[in-house]
């Protein structure tokens, strides 16, 4: 009950503080804001599906980032064999990953749902290992790239010159967030999924097909990663361990936002992205940028625990 009260207060103070901070940063380090928003959106885009699985299916998927790698290699393969633009290939990659997710769920994940908690952790650890190594065996550890000239395009406003491509991360993150929220709040299936996330036993009693919901949510999550895969391919090098750092980042964002809070992930992503970019822009101290990420995360979680949000 205490939770709803604090939430009410947060709704005003936090965004207000954030906006003031943002304006201040923008005045002194405008590029840090631009770069931070771009990278932060990407973190959020990749973290949202992880949080979705964590919140509703209750699985911490250690192979999450490796699905990103897999998706990127599929897009790369499509590009090399058909010449299809990586952005367009999203329409093939995302459904393909959805199917991969469904298959994996059926074969493995569904078997461990009743097993002791944490077994899923070991399972996804094994899956991550298999994915990384199979990719390494097929494509070797040598990085691959796709070059399209729009990925390094830039625009100038006044004296500012900044890259435009990475704003697609922001668009995608907001788009996915809106669609997911619409789905969870306004469709029958989505409402059922939401109910399962809140109380799986209760949901079962009311006649919701919990198994089916789990399958759907897990597959959708993996599918969304496919969108990120297509978006990042023109901009980044891909290699067998390309996606795995994103698992940790996603996990951090999900925890920082609090379970079940998808909108919070976008805010957290932006905050951490800007924080990182800010430190990177300070001469001689760029090596400390990771500490912002971890520091902010620890601060937010502990402060909230003292407020009694989730002890």
């Amino acid at each position: 009950m205490a939770e709803t009260k604090t939430h009410g207060r947060h709704q005003f103070t936090l965004p207000l503080l954030a906006i003031v901070a943002l304006i201040l940063i923008f005045i002194f380090k405008p590029y840090a804001v631009i770069y931070g928003v771009q990278r932060g959106s990407l973190y959020a885009l990749i973290a949202m599906p992880l949080a979705l699985t964590l919140g509703i299916v209750g699985i911490l998927n250690l192979a999450h980032g490796d699905f990103l790698t897999l998706g990127a290699y599929i897009a790369y393969w499509i590009f090399n064999s058909t010449g299809l633009d990586p952005l367009l290939s999203i329409f093939a990659v995302a459904p393909l990953l959805f199917v991969v997710g469904a298959g994996l769920y059926k074969i493995t994940v569904s078997k461990v749902l009743r097993a002791p908690l944490l077994n899923q952790l070991l399972l996804t650890f094994g899956i991550a290992m298999i994915l990384e190594e199979v990719i390494n065996l097929i494509w070797t550890s040598r990085p691959r790239n796709v070059y399209v000239n729009y990925a390094s395009a830039s625009a100038s406003i006044g004296g500012f010159r900044f890259g435009t491509y990475e704003f697609s991360y922001l668009l995608a993150a907001v788009g996915v967030l809106v669609l997911l929220r619409l789905f969870l709040k306004h469709t029958r299936l989505g409402k059922a999924a939401f109910a399962v996330g809140q109380n799986p036993k209760g949901a079962k009693i009311v006649g919701i097909n919990v198994e089916m919901i789990y399958l759907l949510i897990f597959s959708i999550s993996v599918g969304i990663v496919g969108i990120a895969a297509g978006l990042t391919l023109p901009r980044m090098s891909i290699f067998p361990l390309f996606g795995s750092p994103f698992t940790l980042k996603s996990f951090c964002l999900a925890a920082m936002a609090g379970l079940g809070n998808l909108t919070g992930i976008l805010w957290s992503g932006l905050a951490l992205g800007i924080g990182e970019a800010l430190v990177q822009s300070i001469e001689g101290y760029s090596g400390w940028s990771d500490i912002v990420f971890f520091g902010v995360l620890i601060a937010v979680i502990t402060i909230r625990s003292y407020r009694g949000s989730y002890v």
Binding site: P143, N145, S152, S154, F162, G163, Y165, R235, S237
Partner: peptide, 15 residues
């Protein structure tokens, strides 16, 4: 090696 092409793309981006 993973830095190679993104480095060039970003150098181009900022001119």
């Amino acid at each position: 090696d993973a830095d190679a092409l993104p480095m060039m793309a970003q150098a181009k981006e900022i001119g």
